[in-house]
Design a protein around this nucleic acid. Sequence first.
DNA 1: CGGAAAATTGACTTACATCAAACTCAGTGG
DNA 2: CCACTGAGTTTGATGTAAGTCAATTTTCCG
Lengths: 253, 253
Amino acid sequence: MYAPQIAPSARSATLPSFGLAPATVNLESVFTSQPLETFEAGEALFWEGDAASHVFQIVEGCLRLCRILPDGRRAVTGFAFGGEMLGVSFLGSYLYTAEVVTKVRLRRLARGRFYAAVDGAADLRPQLLARICEEMGAAHKHMIVLGQLSAEERVVSFLLSAARRTGADIKKPVSIELPMSRLDIADYLGLTIETVSRVFSKLKRNGLVGLEGRHTVILRRMRQLQDLAGGMADDDELPSPQVSTRYSTVWPN
Amino acid sequence: MYAPQIAPSARSATLPSFGLAPATVNLESVFTSQPLETFEAGEALFWEGDAASHVFQIVEGCLRLCRILPDGRRAVTGFAFGGEMLGVSFLGSYLYTAEVVTKVRLRRLARGRFYAAVDGAADLRPQLLARICEEMGAAHKHMIVLGQLSAEERVVSFLLSAARRTGADIKKPVSIELPMSRLDIADYLGLTIETVSRVFSKLKRNGLVGLEGRHTVILRRMRQLQDLAGGMADDDELPSPQVSTRYSTVWPN
DNA sequence: CGGAAAATTGACTTACATCAAACTCAGTGG
DNA sequence: CCACTGAGTTTGATGTAAGTCAATTTTCCG
């Protein structure tokens, strides 16, 4: 899992709904009447510790989610992209600062209104829970990456997560965009810039990836990359599509 | 936070509900008609990857929540104690194996029934969300511990989290019980047994803690311990008691 | 008690961090 | 259009926190 934020649930967007699916409404529809806002690179959507006043639906762009420790160290806890929601799983205040990496277009809704809307629609409640559960799964996975994997394993699993985000077949070479800086990646993976850079260089030297400019990586040897990921390559996207699409009014399980 | 599982919400249990609080039901009450089960040390409650069939309410005891990587490495993603719930934030299958550290007494409920019960009571829905948000906050905190803190900082922040669990005043010396083994702690903190042990010894040598047997630690110099925790000592237990107790029928914010 | 598992301690190694250049490249202005 | 600039990145040399390997020592349970 690339971003610990609520995943875009690509399936429900891309699959036709057949005759079966009664999916009357989906979570995204809650935002449809909200105006589209734009944030430029460098701006902050909200700050860690701020009262969590809104829930956001990212339409496009990339955000960096981070916290600063008292002594200045920075932890990037995740990235958020178009199609995801932000701010759903916070209690009173935001857990992190959300900063724009590349120009973001989004819709927002006051938390109270968001929850009221979801709470009022029996269809939506299980969808919200499912989203949060996905986010939880991502957080757990990242814990393991940070706690158990070597530098190389961390970087490779990051690249593979990014690849998976594209939706492309993960068996075949893919070109991925990494809009964030090396520092962002380093702070996300609990490494230094230099270490991230050295792993990139080594992967390139061994022909596993190609680097084009600062922000695009071509993953070439998918099999070998999988092997280097130390077991954090597989198992995302657990096979449970039934929740979001087909039986959307039913609680998980 | 110590355990990434849903916190016991100590306040709602200990505070009187005054006249104001209309709190008709609380989340725990959903389990009251379920029989009390017992699990002995070493048993597993469920396994990572199993279909997530039940939600558990831990009455007493301690559990270790862990995942095994393909190559045998083990990650302990958290511990669970009496008063907490387990299995709430899973989609289709359990994200980790739950193993009993010390004899556990619990009640369980089929997930479908649990969610139906919560979904049917407008009072309970915000409570469930609040619980999951707390769990999310704990997961985020642990990410930072694993990604940014030194060995000493990790161990100290672990000790302080354990101290906070006791509910005692965190300014004054406390004696804490650590029922889990050093290996469990090491795998939780992304360190080795030896490193954990060395940090314990150093803290003892410097008079910051006392060690009595394998499982009890006396925290003596709270101020200095706080300083060594590298900024992960404070800020749990965010001031948002309103959700669970006083306005329990209202969504956060 | 005795014995095995758990924990501690010590000597040594290593993966990653740190410090310090050099290089790249996207803007900007001449 | 190209030189200049500075942030971002890569590369290299060196340092160090934590890991590994290997004995002890402690604990606790029968």
